[in-house]
């Protein structure tokens, strides 16, 4: 099982049972097809997306596992952060349909061929997709909700220490000066 992957792709050995390999958006479908036919990695167990905002890319992770559930293979595919759609795997794996619906709602990635991209968790959401790094959740909260009053008498400990030191120092000088 490992031999096929070794020669055809440059494999990264993360742990004895976890491997990773990079693939571009165009090669994704036929790499998946090759892997599922030639090796026993035939189950998609997770579809992840990491937002590397400073490198201007989304890194999609297709987590494959074999029929014996003993090894995991991570297919990592980097795409631009907007206006790029991915091919949908809903026909290859039935479970991919919901995962793609979640990523579509949370990151705004389009998946061609997946008709059920309606809302997954948020109802009537009219802001940018919330899991993108540029979405600031605290700003959204301060705009839409307000907190309970009664906590305004919070003091910043550092100023207090400085104030007390200044007061202590001035107290020491005034008796000498007076």
């Amino acid at each position: 099982m490992m031999s096929y992957l070794e020669e055809h792709y440059e494999l990264i050995h993360k742990t004895p049972r976890l491997f990773a390999l990079h693939v571009t958006r165009e090669q994704l479908l036929d790499t998946l097809h090759q892997i599922t036919t030639h090796t026993s990695f035939d189950t998609l167990s997770q579809l992840t997306c990491t937002d590397w905002i400073e490198e201007e890319r989304f890194e999609l992770g297709y987590m494959l596992t074999n029929a014996l559930r003993s090894h995991n293979l991570m297919l990592k595919c980097s795409i631009a952060r907007d206006k790029v759609t991915m091919p949908s795997l809903a026909l290859l794996f039935a479970q991919a349909e919901v995962m793609e619906r979640e990523l579509h709602e949370m990151f705004g990635i389009g998946f061609e061929g997946n008709e059920t991209l309606y809302d997954f968790a948020l109802e009537g959401w009219c802001d940018i997709p919330p899991m993108r790094r540029e979405f600031d959740t605290l700003a959204y909260v301060n705009a839409h909700y307000d907190f309970r009053e009664g906590r305004e008498d919070n003091l910043d400990v550092k100023e207090e220490i400085k104030k007390r030191k200044a007061a202590a120092k001035s107290a020491k000088e005034t008796p000498s000066g007076a």
Binding site: S45, Q46, T48, C49, T50, D51, W52, M63, A94, Q95, E97, V98, M99
Partner: peptide, 15 residues
């Protein structure tokens, strides 16, 4: 940077 959780119910409840 990123932590994504996949529970068994995500697959069992839909597909």
């Amino acid at each position: 940077r990123r932590m994504q959780v996949k529970g068994p119910s995500l697959i069992h409840a839909f597909s």
